[in-house]
Design a protein around this nucleic acid. Structure first.
Lengths: 225, 225
DNA sequence: TCAAAAGTGTTGTTTATACACCCATGT
DNA sequence: ACATGGGTGTATAAACAACACTTTTGA
């Protein structure tokens, strides 16, 4: 999967190395989390980093990103958007390196992390990040800013929740991403007015309190609202 | 400047070709215009296209975009933003091609187009475009959408106007980009409330009518407002 | 009967929109 | 005096923000 960067030294034209990486977000236990991978080669061996790899020859960018996402989480058909292209992530690649970043939103419970010895992955809260390889911290900050914007004017939250969910769960998703608490009444009013969710007849019982009505997203395709 | 794409055939690893292109917008004669270049090689020889070229070895992306911009317009230090990275613009490059698109906003009067026989450039109104090479029409549509969004919540219009300008000139810029006319009073009110421009003591006389007050941008750095 | 989360309306403030006339100047 | 673009205010509607109590359930 990951060819040696050094192989480019053989080439005449010294074309840049092209990589694709994916910032994978989820919301779990009222926290926004991101999937990181521990590097098993230099540079930055042993450091945590955003998962990614080489672009395959002739491979479309979106497919490469979706492939990485499946490799690391097993999920497909989730919200996946191109984030930014970085030209200087890896200064050690003598021929220059271009890294095309994506970000994805996944429902925590639909993910199954790969079990392997090398290149282990784990979820990290955004407020408890380890020190990251390259300038990956800056990339995450940028991804988070984009996600916060998107949340305001699209329905992408669908990609962070199961098919049926309560209004409170939805609100938790918004609060975890925006990093602040929202007024319950205003939140419901706004979400319902936008029409991005549809109430169902079903309810669900968590504990010793009134059962909650279940909702579904009116559309599970990305939409600007 | 433009090496043969075919040269990549010699390489062992078949790394993708990496190109950078720049959608250069301006407003002139109450029209939003874009700078196009006529291709002088195959594929699409003789067709109009968005100006661009190979990324230099080890060259940072932003510098490559700024370099292209200077080559084609002579201007520097204008608003220049990464737009999107396309993986499939040029299907003829057998090893795959990655093209990183930028968009720039320039003041028409500060541009001097290069005079040369080959690869001529010209301004085109967005409502009078020729048929374009590759999927460049789609790229332009995307760039225009981004520009329209940006206009609403940033001060990037500064990059389309000279240091001193009238409120009408500013309104023309907005109208040309948004593609609809705006109410004069509401426009002034909003722009002044946002504080992105500062009135000066100077006025200017165009013709047989009341002189117009000149404004400057409060900041000529991109700002979110 | 108590604890815990679900659910529900009203009011005030801010923001956006629609709309028409007078002003300063050159010819 | 007239043609031309510059400049100004008000009223209505819509969106947003602040805020507290009742309901249903399990223990």
């Amino acid at each position: 999967m990951t060819r040696e960067v050094a192989s480019s030294k053989d080439e005449k034209a010294r074309q840049p190395v092209v990589a694709v990486f994916v910032v994978i977000f989820t919301v779990h236990e009222q926290k926004l989390k991101v999937l990181l991978i521990r590097r098993d080669i230099e540079p930055f061996r042993g450091w945590w980093a955003i998962p990614g790899g080489r672009l395959g020859t002739g491979e479309p960018l979106d497919e490469a990103a979706a492939r990485k996402l499946v490799e690391e989480t097993g999920v497909r058909d989730v919200y996946l958007e191109q984030l930014y292209t970085f030209g200087d992530l890896d200064r050690t690649a003598s021929a220059g390196a271009v890294a095309i970043g994506y970000f994805a939103l996944v429902d925590y419970d639909s993910v199954s992390l790969p079990t392997r010895e090398e290149w282990p992955t784990a979820w990290f809260s955004l407020d408890g990040l380890p020190e990251l390889a390259f300038n990956n911290k800056g990339v995450l900050d940028y991804a988070l800013r984009r996600l916060r914007y998107k949340l305001e004017y699209t329905n992408v939250a669908y990609s962070l929740l199961p098919p049926y969910f309560t209004m409170s769960q939805l609100q938790t998703v918004y609060e975890s991403i925006l990093g602040r608490s929202l007024d319950k009444r205003n939140f419901r009013k706004r979400i319902l007015a936008l029409g991005i969710v549809t109430p169902t007849e079903k309810t669900v019982l968590f504990g010793a309190h009134r059962p909650a009505k279940l909702y579904t997203f009116s559309s599970r395709q990305p939409q600007i609202i």
